[in-house]
């Protein structure tokens, strides 16, 4: 498989990256780990006359854990799994990262690439919506921050402008119980359905919840209604059922090689119920 020819750039700082993006416009694109982009280029579903490799750009990787958690765009999924401070502060990150792809892919695939890609199959976007993260992007007009819940417009369409580069994701240290539950056909497959859940418990009552679903629409789905269905309840069977019903009103899966719509809706319900139960047991 031979991708279309391209000019390769490996700038050593962000101003170099932005200058190439300015100069070549739509013909230029950044590459992080390349494990979504290269397969697309090999299939000639993406053509990138000017490929900008971010690997030498300083300051884009690393994990900072405090009341706010910040993860640099070039931080790999393997880095996330290995980081004990992150696993202690936001254990859903490790739980989710372990369910992405396979070991080789996780050494290369980055958080920035995963969330910027805009592929509904990617696991991090839903996870970031569950955590109410925001994405920092930098462009010719400087830096701005975009909430993950407003970032995704349609498949491969996001609120990031073509001349902007994502530099980090950040979110408040999550409280309460968590679960990332994913149904896939085999290791290395994208989700048939996946659910990210965070729940806070006070006494025996759920005081807040956040629920986001993956690969069940052309964007990740943060389900406000499903989250609301749990709040004020003891997360009993009736509440879980109500949350699942609310979630099913928000997703819009399409038939593909992972199954027909009815099957996907069924799996989404099973996966969300499991995720809620596990998150509640950990709350």
């Amino acid at each position: 498989m031979i991708p279309a020819a391209f000019e390769y750039h490996r700038p050593s700082d962000m101003s170099g990256v932005l200058a190439i993006l300015q100069e070549h416009g739509d013909d230029a694109r950044v590459m992080a780990g390349g494990h979504s982009l290269i397969p697309m280029m090999k299939l000639r579903m993406a053509e990138v006359p000017h490929l900008i490799d971010l690997q030498d750009v300083g300051g884009l990787s690393g994990i900072m854990v405090g009341d706010t958690i910040t993860i640099g765009a070039m931080t790999t999924q393997a880095d996330i799994i290995d980081n004990d401070a992150l696993a202690a502060a936001a254990p859903i990150m490790r739980e989710a990262a372990l369910q992405i792809a396979d070991p080789q892919v996780r050494y290369m695939g980055t958080v920035g690439g995963n969330v910027a890609n805009g592929d509904p199959g990617n696991d991090m976007p839903g996870l970031m919506q569950c955590l109410d993260a925001s994405f920092t992007v930098v462009g010719p007009d400087g830096e701005r921050s975009i909430p993950a819940r407003d970032f995704y417009e349609a498949a491969y369409m996001t609120a990031r402008e073509d001349d902007e580069v994502l530099t980090a994701v950040s979110f408040a240290k999550p409280a309460g119980g968590y679960a990332y539950e994913k149904q896939k056909r085999k290791i290395g497959d994208y989700a048939t359905a996946a659910a990210a859940v965070q729940i806070v418990k006070d006494g025996g009552t759920c005081v807040s919840a956040a629920i986001a679903m993956t690969n069940l629409s052309d964007t990740p789905v943060y389900s406000q209604a499903a989250s609301a269905a749990l709040v004020g309840t003891s997360v009993d069977e009736a509440a879980v059922k109500a949350a699942v019903a609310a979630m099913l009103g928000d997703i819009d899966p399409v038939e593909d090689n992972r199954g027909p719509v009815a099957f996907k809706r069924h799996v989404a319900g099973v996966i969300l119920a499991r995720a809620i139960e596990r998150a509640w047991s950990r709350a």
Partner: peptide
Amino acid sequence: TSHCGACTVTIDGKSVKSCTMFVAQ
């Protein structure tokens, strides 16, 4: 297509599928 791992090599201490990396990288 990045799935089988037959092309795995070690690059700077990481296991990498060498069919999914350009020589320039």
